[in-house]
Write a protein that binds this DNA or RNA. Structure first.
Lengths: 240, 240
DNA sequence: CGCGTTCTTGACTGCTTTCAAAGATGGTGG
DNA sequence: CCACCATCTTTGAAAGCAGTCAAGAACGCG
């Protein structure tokens, strides 16, 4: 009865991800599972949250892909970072905060309110899991800056594919070296600071080099070891 | 007796900055001022904090410039974001956290431990000020991604100069349209994802266009209005 | 089956890098 | 006070990576 979109995770994936960040009580897990009932569907290409909106509380993205992004006055779009199914957004440590950045869906998305941790216990498992999740999000932001500032198109693509595979693995959304990637080449370009034309050429180069293929929404990493070597890849550390 | 480096702020600037984020009690301010006594000096080009180091508590950078950065295996350097005098680093909401990124000094730097907020009162003025500070830091990260991903060298330079002027103004470190910028053109390049040669050319273009000059460590914004128009500049909102 | 979106490829342009070398600057010691 | 040296800035010429423009092919949805 509780269905998620095609690119969705079961809530189990999301719980597994948070559990790997901090020890959740069985009550925590139960609260997450029960809030699944309050889920809402959002069409693709819709704003989930706009800059300046009040931040109501943490939100679980149960299924579908979204992004934090920025539109320049002349129409150029930059995708700041992706939000993958099973990840939690709107984690915030300020009182009565306002959103700093707009979040937009790339696919149809299913969300539900994630349980708020006990405000009197900042050390609770749930609060810690959210804090770690936020820290990892920030680490991904740093990686994104590094990618855009100092890597060639070829390196950016490799680094990002590896990172995305690892992130999806946390919620069990990979199948060996394969994963589903519901992004157009234009969206990939807006993420990696390239044109869609050059994304296409770069993917072709990766294919010709036998490193990875991306066809009909499925990515396969053929030679992960070599990809890691080319960009000096290190997974985002678990930061405690 | 308590001296700071040439590019330093008085602690008053740092207190003013935090006070603009949340209402600090006079006790908070007194605690900040009194911790100034525990200050330490760090030479330029030294790591203040290394990836994986345990995070002891918030640290005030009372004087000097530093950066969060990443070194690629082949020596390329990316400056993720700058840390300006009067800003607080190591703000963290995890239990027993480890540093996610290395922080390195660009100039001689003076730091002292910033007071820890009451762990039982997440709504205290100090805790809120730190939380807002961290949120603004993240907003700057997003701006940085946008700059690197979708702006030309010319636009990046303008956008960054405007942002830096605004950030320095929070601690009273600007003199009208002027401010001191203790960075080499190579460091600016590592920040903006450019070579030092192209930084030089870009600054020349800005000078020729009558927008801004940067000579002997002093930047002057000659035509802020036009600079803002060129890049569609909006200051980082106060995010509550 | 038809239409809009997305992908693919070619040819050409141009912004930024690379390589190189000369000039300015600033700090240090004689 | 000045010579000297390292560092930083400035400029030119040439190469290259990625962007732009354009058009045809493939795909997917109704």
């Amino acid at each position: 009865m509780l269905m998620v979109s095609k690119s969705g995770v079961t809530v189990s994936g999301a719980v597994a991800r948070l559990s790997s960040f901090a020890a959740l009580t069985s009550d925590d897990c139960a609260r997450i599972r029960s809030s699944e009932r309050e889920q809402s569907w959002v069409q693709r290409h819709r704003d989930l949250i706009r800059v300046g909106d009040p931040v109501a509380g943490p939100i679980m993205v149960a299924g579908g892909w979204a992004y934090r992004g920025h539109l320049l006055p002349d129409g150029r779009r930059q995708i700041i970072d992706l939000i993958l199914p099973g990840e939690v957004i709107n984690i915030c440590f300020r009182q009565d905060p306002l959103a700093v950045v707009t979040i937009t869906t790339l696919t149809e998305v299913v969300t539900f309110p994630a349980p708020r941790p006990d405000p009197n216990d900042a050390a609770s498992g749930l609060a810690q899991a959210y804090a770690v999740s936020a820290a990892i999000e920030e680490a991904h932001l740093c990686r994104q800056v590094r990618r855009l500032g100092r890597m060639s198109a070829y390196e950016r693509m490799i680094d990002w594919l590896l990172e995305t595979h690892d992130r999806l693995a946390l919620t069990g959304m990979v199948d060996g070296a394969d994963f589903t990637l519901p992004l157009t080449q234009e969206a990939i370009g807006d993420l990696l600071g390239l044109t869609s034309v050059h994304v296409n050429r770069t993917l072709k180069a990766l294919r010709d080099d036998g490193m990875a293929t991306a066809a009909s929404r499925v990515v396969r990493l053929h030679d992960r070891a070599r990809m890691e070597r080319v960009v000096g890849y290190k997974p985002v550390r678990t930061v405690q």
